[in-house]
């Protein structure tokens, strides 16, 4: 069931990033006309997208616009019905499951906690793809990685605790720690900040951005919170009805008419310190202003509105 680890992982680049030298930015994953549907419901409908290493891309869009499905497609957890997912320029279907498992981390917002597991047991599961099937306990290397991830995220004191004894903020850090314990080249997070207060939200995004920079990893985060997205993402892909409606730097995407139309609410962008742009969604005005119709599930027929090169 487990493949041996002798084969080269999808990204040949040094995951640690060569110290001093500017790591090479390149396309880690490319989706080409990807389609996926659940029965008759098209969840992702012809998405073409490049995901760059060293960058944080945010997926935003209304509920049911296909963000989670897109993440699953990127992680090869589901296979596209049409179109191709390229990992490092090679069709993802040509990799062995073990290779994908070692290079990609995908983490969900909900963690079932019916049986008592300690935080360390959970984080160590991320090292399984690096172990041989017959290896019963963790190697020193596994423990060293977990140790350093726990230090980075400040959760060393939580490792001994049971998952059901952690607060939402603590649990989310543990979930991120598990995702990072693979030292993935591609980190995919579905709503990592769903249950967090503002400060924890910022801290989680800070960790994620730092990871992308330091390890030259590609990071894709699905977010509902436009405010956080505008602060921490290098680029934003706005989804609507299974398609990419707009793609570009947060300031451009959020100030565009497309964003307002997709969400059906007004979005104000505020410039702070001359450089930082914050997106603030506005509540719908009763009886006026916006066209009011909430058309999140509408499929944009035109090709995505692409703002200046997202990777620059």
């Amino acid at each position: 069931m487990r493949h041996d680890r002798s084969t080269a992982p999808p990204a040949e680049g040094d995951a640690g990033g060569a110290p001093g030298a500017e790591p090479e930015k390149r396309v880690a994953v490319r989706l080409d006309g990807v389609v996926y549907s659940y029965g008759s419901i098209k969840a992702v409908d012809g998405v073409t997208l490049e995901i760059w290493s060293g960058k944080v891309m945010c997926l935003v869009g209304p509920n049911g616009s296909g963000k989670t499905t897109l993440l699953k497609l990127v992680a090869s957890l589901v296979r596209p019905l049409r179109g191709v997912v390229y990992v490092n320029g090679k069709d993802a279907r040509l990799y062995r499951p073990g290779e994908i498992a070692r290079a990609f981390s995908f983490s969900e917002p909900h963690l079932p906690r019916t049986l008592p597991m300690r935080a360390i047991d959970f984080v160590l599961t991320s090292r399984y793809p690096f172990q041989r099937t017959l290896q019963y306990f963790e190697s020193e290397e596994d423990l060293r990685v977990v140790e350093s991830v726990a230090e980075e995220l400040g959760i060393a004191h939580l490792l001994e605790r049971r998952l059901d004894q952690l607060s939402s903020g603590e649990l989310q850090r543990v979930v991120i720690a598990a995702a990072l314990a693979k030292r993935p080249r591609v980190l995919l997070l579905d709503e990592p900040s769903a249950f967090l207060d503002v400060r924890n939200r910022f801290e989680v995004m800070e960790i994620v951005r730092r990871y992308a920079r330091e390890r030259n990893a590609a990071v894709v985060v699905a977010l509902h919170d436009l405010f956080t997205a505008s602060l921490y993402c290098d680029s934003v892909a706005l989804m609507s009805g299974g398609r990419i409606a707009a793609l570009g730097p947060p300031a451009d995407v959020f100030s565009s008419e497309v964003a307002k139309r997709v969400y059906g609410v007004g979005i104000e962008t505020v410039r702070v310190d001359g450089t930082t742009v914050i997106a603030v969604p506005l509540p719908p005005q009763p009886g006026g202003g916006e066209d009011g119709s909430r058309n999140g599930r509408e499929r944009p027929d035109e090709s995505p509105r692409v703002f200046n090169d997202a990777s620059a």
Binding site: M1, A75, E108, L115
Partner: peptide
């Protein structure tokens, strides 16, 4: 234990 998707992303 942590979900179908969680196990799948570990290669199981």
């Amino acid at each position: 234990l942590f979900g179908d998707l969680y196990a799948a992303q570990l290669g199981y």
